[in-house]
């Protein structure tokens, strides 16, 4: 198994605030890796740093053998790093169709096969193809955001809390689709609050706490871990 992404001891600051204090983790080619953590732990910051929206003040990020920290997002996307930012962020006044086309901005023209594939993954988008994205429901917008990222033909897909604010049934649908995308060979770095679903899906997971990795293991291990259960699944610690 080859390492696709390796984050090495990065420190990220917002002015004086240190959001990440030396975070290291690895993502292997073809894996789903989950980043868990409480609010404000630094999950979003980690993803933004990987996708190039922020630059680390210390440490380095290596992707596919190249050092990528400090490279802006519009260049990273050409390497196949596609980011679905937190809170969906579709283009509300553009139609679903236009949103998907924007996802393929890095290409001269959108790939029709990929477009068709996205609409197969998300049939609801096909029904609403000419509707402004702002009129979609929350779940549909999340699907659109993921579909838009897929239009960029990702090799590494960064998903930031895809389950945020969605009903359990939809969360399950979306996670199923993520699994499908992964099985097609796309590596996924998933940020989640919804630990049980995320860990059920993930090959491995990392737990962040105030800017540091405190726990790591396979999905199953973490799911069985008392601390995780206590903190994220709201269970009483037995002992």
């Amino acid at each position: 198994m080859t390492v696709l992404l390796s984050v090495e001891d990065i420190e990220v600051r917002y002015g004086a605030i240190k959001a990440l204090k030396g975070v290291s983790f690895e993502v292997n080619e073809g894996e789903v890796v989950a980043l868990l953590g409480a609010n404000g732990a630094g999950k979003t910051t980690t993803q933004k740093t990987v996708s190039g929206m922020m630059r680390p003040s210390l440490g380095q990020i290596v992707y596919d053998g190249y050092r990528i920290d400090g490279i802006p997002p519009h260049e990273l996307i050409t390497l196949g790093i596609c980011h679905v930012p937190e809170g969906r962020r579709v283009f509300p006044r553009m139609t679903v169709n236009e949103n998907l086309e924007m996802g393929a901005f890095r290409f001269k023209r959108p790939d029709a096969a990929v477009f068709e594939h996205v609409l197969e993954l998300f049939p609801r988008l096909r029904e609403r193809i000419k509707q402004p994205a702002g009129t979609l429901s929350g779940g549909e917008q999340q699907m659109l955001a993921i579909g838009r990222a897929l239009m960029g033909k990702p090799r590494l897909l960064l998903l930031d809390e895809p389950s945020m604010g969605l009903a359990p049934l939809i969360v399950k649908q979306i996670f199923d689709i993520v699994r499908g995308i992964n099985s097609e060979g796309v590596t996924v770095l998933l940020v989640e609050q919804n630990a049980s679903q995320a860990l059920a899906l993930a090959d491995r997971g990392y737990v962040l706490e105030t800017g540091e990795i405190v726990l790591t293991g396979t999905g199953a291990e973490l799911l069985a871990d008392d601390r995780v259960r206590a903190a994220y699944l709201g269970e009483e610690i037995a002992s």
Binding site: H74, I77, P85, A149
Partner: peptide
């Protein structure tokens, strides 16, 4: 148009 609507999303879709 994309930047006008949502700058972060525009960045995420690879717009400089």
């Amino acid at each position: 148009a994309a930047i006008r609507e949502d700058e972060v999303a525009a960045q995420a879709t690879g717009i400089n």
